[in-house]
Each structure stands twice: as structure tokens, then as C-alpha cells.
């Protein structure tokens, strides 16, 4: 079994042998990236922007994205809106019902760290990456359709960088600063998250 797992690595090491795997990678990744079917569900006001993105002015279909109502046929979960504690188990269930490979975009401030409900809400989950792994965060309250679309393009780039047979690098669950009990979501360059900003997972840094 160990040998089988190593085969892609060996093939790539042979001169020109990499063509085989990279060719396969290219086809599969492009196929996955250009048909991300997203799940039809919205939680709060971000869902309105999600609908606007699917409608004619912005048009998700340009990227090959169509909605499916059942989690069994979706590749992408766009968590659009405030995730309450009561809703959280359902969202986790929906995520678990999706077939692999599956991706998650957390849309809006609420899904990143609770947003406007961060300080004094007993019922809002402060960040959806506490329950499911998130690939792309789209900041904004709510983000404009352009921002969401940009997030989807960022996710496509992420998918295009995958390797067949390799485990995907997933950002882990949320790191919480033990001292302040704050989620640590800070861009490395500015230290701030601006609205409508796309944040790639590798840009998240844990501050201590």
C-alpha cells in the first residue's frame, strides 16, 4: 500500500514522467474548477446577495456554477449568512451529506467571526469554521456579488493547484487566542480585514 501511495511522486521524479500525472491533474482540476455546483441554501441577508450573484447581472453560470437543491449533487457549500447555534448542527449535517471532493466558502462577517453578533449574542456561532473546514472566506457585511464571485475564482485557483492522490491542504479549525478569547483572522500585510476582501487560507495567521 505504501508503494501505491508513493507512485505519483515516483512518476514525477522520472524526467518527462511528470507529464502523465500533471496532464491528469490538469484535466481533473479544470473539470472540478469549472463545474462547482453549489448548494441552494441561505441563512440570512448574505443569501440575498448570493441570489443576486446567481441572477442575470452577475451570473454564476458564467463560471459553470449552477445550484442543486440536494447536498448529494453539490461540490460547493456557500454558507451565506448568520449561523445560529440551533442551525449549526443542520449545516454540519448538510456538509457531511455532500460527496467528496467538497469545498466551503464562508460568506460574510457572521460566518467568519460572528460579525455584528460577535460581542453580545448568546445564540450565534462565532465563525462557521468551528464546525466545518472552510476553504475561502469572503469578508463584507454582506459582501457584494463581485466579492463573492472573486471568492469563487479564488477557490477555482485553489482547486487548480491540487494534486491527484494527495490529501488537500485544508485550513484547520479556528484558532482562538487563549488570552483574549478572540478569533485570529488577520491579514499578514495590513493586519486588517477590509470589507469585500478575499482571504486565502494561507494568508490567515495565528497571532500569539
Amino acid at each position: 500500500m505504501d508503494l501505491i501511495k508513493k507512485i505519483p511522486a515516483y512518476v514525477e521524479r522520472i524526467p518527462n514522467g511528470g507529464i502523465l500525472m500533471t496532464g491528469l491533474d490538469w484535466v481533473l482540476n479544470n473539470a472540478k474548477a469549472s463545474s462547482m455546483w453549489y448548494m441552494l441554501f441561505g441563512l440570512a441577508c448574505c443569501a440575498i446577495e448570493l441570489m443576486a450573484t446567481g441572477a442575470s447581472r452577475y451570473d454564476f453560470d458564467r463560471l459553470g456554477m449552477i445550484f442543486r437543491a440536494t447536498p448529494r449533487q453539490t461540490d460547493l457549500m456557500i454558507v451565506a449568512g448568520t449561523l445560529t447555534l440551533k442551525m449549526a448542527p443542520r449545516v454540519k449535517l448538510l456538509y457531511e451529506q455532500m460527496p467528496d471532493p467538497k469545498y466551503v466558502i464562508a460568506m460574510g462577517g457572521c460566518t467568519m467571526h460572528g460579525g455584528p453578533f460577535y460581542h453580545d449574542s448568546y445564540s450565534v456561532l462565532k465563525g462557521v469554521d468551528k464546525i466545518i473546514p472552510v476553504d475561502i472566506h469572503v469578508a463584507g457585511c454582506p459582501p457584494r456579488p463581485e466579492a463573492l464571485m472573486n471568492g469563487c475564482i479564488a477557490l477555482q485557483d485553489l482547486i487548480r493547484g491540487e494534486k491527484v492522490g494527495r490529501k488537500r491542504d485544508r485550513p484547520g479549525l479556528r484558532h482562538i487566542d487563549p488570552a483574549t478569547n478572540l478569533p485570529l483572522l488577520v491579514r499578514p500585510d495590513t493586519g486588517l480585514i477590509r470589507p469585500n476582501q478575499i482571504i486565502m487560507p494561507d494568508q490567515l495567521r495565528v497571532l500569539s
Binding site: K32, S34, G64, D75, P99, P101
Partner: peptide, 19 residues
């Protein structure tokens, strides 16, 4: 535009998990 859209969909569905 998008002539290979269905081909992409088909390849993606082919490599997806069968539940």
C-alpha cells in the same frame, strides 16, 4: 462560449464520491 461545459460537468461527476 463554454462549449466544453458539459464535458467538465461529466468528468467532475465521474470523479465524485458515490454515496
Amino acid at each position: 462560449g463554454g462549449l466544453l461545459q458539459t464535458a467538465a460537468d461529466a468528468i467532475k461527476l465521474l470523479v465524485k464520491e458515490l454515496i
